[in-house]
Design a binder for these strands. Structure first.
Length: 567
RNA sequence: UGGGGCGUCGUCAAGUGGCAAGACACAGGACUUUGGCUCCUGCAUCGGAGGUUCGAAUCCUCCCGCCCCAGCCA
């Protein structure tokens, strides 16, 4: 990999790397660069997290630094071990390694408690008896200052005693909090004596029932960063308002000063990124699960056939900045095609079969033709394809009454069967009742073996095909965008993102015919189905029951032309 | 009405006072045993208005627009 993750080196620096290089030249941390990726284990990772992962691990790699994986598990009521496992799997799959630096905020609960005590001792925190509603009332509003809690001036001794009793479980859930003593009139609401510790009796996935008080994010996060010696703590824009508090805690505690830097989170066209909304899609069964190939989750993208390389390349190409934006999914798909074009074996797959009988080809004869596996990678070699009298071609490759510029098969037309022969359509067999074309009668030119005519004549079209008796049956799932509008999160009045779900996001094709070499494919194998697109063997696929997911289609200028004509 | 941010091509995004990178998309064209790939070509005066300057996307002023914040969530 290059300087960043995969992208081209020598480009201009983004604002975060600019800060890092400034710190490096000023000697702020003796050139040390240490980042972290801090997910809360309450859901599956999505492509937005991938941006953050690539940023944090990528920066560490680029500057010879380190990046920790740290689970931000300070709220046991919503966090689960299942998510911890999936997150680790996803980060690894993306190609990053936290080595021995796997941490949990819960590792620091003991230290964090001591920090709480320390805050009380310097007169910067107090135990407050206000209820949640009262705290809200006392907080004031966006435009009006808040009121100080009547418990704000308790003595240090009393606070110490009460905090210890909170920890010991002497008070009910929610009956008391530890609050930082800052400024109830601050324009920044985060600074209005924020809650630092709350009482919450729920079993933590790692510490069990050892604690009944848990630190709030703002307190736990900056302290965890500090404890780990994180130099640059990169997070998303909505935490910008929290930075003064982040700095305040570290200053009061007089511990290592990590620096929080905020960037704009990723938005992608035709999908959604919020964990809450993704969860809703799963729970309401609009998708089959977190790893549905329609989902923008890492596990969904993986199952769909996206490669870690393409995701990393995407992260590089979109850059990092502070402005809200919505990136075109085309950018992701472009990188994917670029990656797969170089690596995916080409394969014959007829999705909507139309039988072709080659009348002048001997019955009961078969031969093998040689086919290159990947023209972009000669080292991939060749394979043998069986050819015989009866084959299948793509239904859409034939038209009885073709429009101008249709280069494929039509009555009387000659086309090339890729790697095999030229064939000419002699007649059409139709279903007597429906009039539907059910079979083509063709002849082949035995002189055109390999797809080249010795007399030098040219054909405009080249079709993919599969020998009828040798082909394997397969199920193919064609995926489209999950939503029908670019930005479903930005719904018009009276609607929400659910109103924009694409009812045709998945089209399942059965009875597809694929070349016999696919018999042994295993989940996550990538292929290019010639002239169709890139496909990936689904995790439910077995040798007897092949299932492929369309990762992304090939660019299709013919389809584009048709579409333009119809508009 | 308070606080914090952001506004450069259709979409991302460089640029930090000297003649507006790049990518995707789009449009033409070449090549082609994938209507794929590849290769050429084209494609913005920088939210607005004033001002400073020989010169401004870059500095100043005012205005406009968008995003975030009132969880004992993260």
């Amino acid at each position: 990999m290059n300087e960043k993750n995969t992208g081209s080196p020598g480009e201009s620096l983004d604002f975060i790397r600019t800060i890092i290089e400034e710190d490096n030249t000023s000697g702020k941390h003796d050139g040390r660069v240490h980042t972290r990726f801090p997910p809360e284990p309450n859901g599956y990772l999505h492509i937005g997290h991938a941006k953050s992962i690539c940023l944090n691990f990528g920066i560490a790699r680029q500057y010879n630094g380190l990046c920790n994986l740290r689970f931000d598990d300070t709220n046991p009521s919503r966090e689960e071990i299942e998510y911890v496992d999936s997150i680790m799997e996803d980060v690894r799959w993306l190609g990053f390694d936290w080595e021995e630096r796997l941490f949990y905020a819960s590792d620091y609960f003991g230290q964090l408690y001591e920090y709480g005590v320390q805050l009380i001792k310097v007169g910067k925190a107090f135990v407050c008896d206000l209820s949640a509603e009262e705290i809200r009332e006392y907080r004031g509003t966006l435009t009006e200052p808040g009121k100080e809690s009547p418990f704000r001036d308790r003595s240090i001794e009393e606070n110490l005693d009460l905090f210890e009793k909170m920890k010991a479980g002497e008070f009910e859930d929610g009956s008391k909090t530890l609050r930082a003593k800052i400024d109830m009139s601050s324009g920044n609401i985060n600074m209005r004596d924020p809650v630092t510790y709350r009482i919450q009796r729920s079993t933590h996935h790692r510490t069990g029932d050892k604690w009944c008080i848990y630190p709030m994010y703002d307190f736990a996060h900056c302290c965890s960063d500090s404890l780990e010696g994180i130099t640059h703590s990169i997070c998303t824009l909505e935490f910008e308002d929290h930075r003064p508090l982040y700095d305040w805690y570290l200053e009061q505690l007089d511990i290592f000063r990590s620096r929080q830097i905020e960037f704009a989170r990723l938005n992608l066209t035709y999908t959604i990124m919020s964990k809450r909304k993704l969860l809703q899609l799963v729970e309401e069964k609009h998708v089959t699960g977190w790893d549905d190939p329609l989902m923008p989750t890492i596990s969904g993208l993986r199952r769909r056939g996206y490669t870690p390389e393409s995701i990393r390349a995407f992260a590089d190409i979109i850059g990092v900045a502070k402005r809200d934006s919505i990136v075109s999914i085309d950018l992701l798909n472009h990188g994917l095609r670029e990656d797969l074009n170089k690596r995916a074996p080409r394969v014959m797959a007829v999705l909507r079969p139309l039988k072709v009988v080659i009348e002048n080809y001997p019955e009961n004869q078969a031969e093998e033709v040689e086919a290159i596996i990947n023209p972009e990678d000669p080292s991939a070699g060749t394979r043998k394809l069986p050819f015989s009298r009866e084959i299948y071609i793509e239904n859409t490759d034939f038209m009885e009454d073709p429009p101008r510029k249709f280069f494929r098969l039509a009555p009387g037309r000659e086309v090339r069967l890729k790697h095999a022969y030229f064939i000419t359509c002699k007649s059409v067999v139709k279903d007597e009742k429906t009039g539907e074309v059910i079979e083509l009668r063709c002849t082949y030119d035995p002189e055109t073996g390999g797809g080249e005519a010795p007399d030098g004549r040219k054909v405009k079209g080249t079709l993919h095909w599969v020998s009828a008796s040798h082909a394997l049956d397969a199920t193919v799932r064609l995926y489209e965008h999950l939503f029908i509008v670019e930005n479903p999160a930005d719904a018009e009045e009276g609607k929400d993102f659910m109103d924009y779900i694409n009812p045709d996001a998945l089209e399942t094709l059965t009875g597809c015919k694929v070349e016999p070499g696919l018999a042994k494919t295993i989940p996550l194998d990538h292929f290019q189905f010639l002239r169709h697109g890139y496909f990936c063997t689904d995790s439910d696929s077995t040798e007897g029951s092949l299932i492929f997911n369309r990762t992304v289609g090939l660019r299709d200028s013919w389809a584009k032309m048709q579409k333009k004509k119809n508009n």
